[in-house]
Amino acid sequence: MMKKTITALLAGLVLAAGAQAAYPDKPVTIIVPFPPGGSTDMLARIMTPKMSEKLGQPVVVENKPGATGAIGATQVKRAAPDGYTVLCASIGMWAANPFLQKNLAYDPAKDFDLLTVAVKSPNVLVTNPNVPAKDVKELVAYLKQKPNKVTFPSSGAGSSDHLSIALFWMLTDTTGIHVPYKGGGPAIADLVAGHAEVSFQNLNNVIGHIKAGKLRALAVTSEKRAALLPDVPTMVELGYKDMVVTSWQALGAPKGLPADVKNTLHAAMMAALKDPETAKKLTDPGFEVTASTPEEFEKFLQSELAKWKHVIEVGKITLD
């Protein structure tokens, strides 16, 4: 105890910046509210080495899965706002849960100090090559010709691809059968095998299949064309200007972080995300590094919340 105080005092003196300059004086924990191995977990683990280097303290990833991120997020909300507990979660936890889960114990906009939107990844509209539609126009015609017959697999009820499908049906005035799976892997497997027909999937999960001709890409849902698929148009280009969907991962901390702690943490995250080596590890699997400021995150979260609230309410998406 004594030794620690002295070290802290010394650190304070050296930096001549008061006692709080000692942050961080112990390991920082990033809570990932999903199981190990998913894309959010992977992002956190790719970021940690550079973050610890910048902070001078180990940064450890702790998985706290359950209830689409709600369990881990609630735990972070209840943690002390001292900068030692950080949350790294995806669009589902930040923007969709509030409108899908009835007894949600956190409010994404109020319970957290928003730090940064780390990465985004565009979704791509893909079909099995046997579907007789070469572009979005033909697909819409095909869907209108076979109302409520075409199957749309997703990685789960309430997942971002489920929401994309619902938004697509709304904007194109079409229908289909939504078929939820346990994760993206099995959904894509059935899509490739031809047991299911049309879906929106994260670009990184399907790029290999598109290149091999096992899936046909009709459009991407980002604002600009994807670097990996320069010939595939965006939905915006095709006239659906509201069909902009990206899945994204962002970091936050319990509400009430001291300003300097917040700055230190954010700087460490920026250092990690903007490091060329780390960035390559992220762009290779298809992430786009966003590395936004807290203010940008704030604005982005509001617009995402509004968008998904609308889609979930109009699309009558419920979990029961």
Partner: peptide, 21 residues
């Protein structure tokens, strides 16, 4: 299975596009 899913992730981090190629 979940282990294979994470192996796919590992391949992508190493700039290998999993798939028939």
């Amino acid at each position: 299975n979940p282990t294979m899913a994470i192996m796919i992730g590992a391949m992508m981090i190493h700039s290998i596009q999993p798939g028939p190629s």
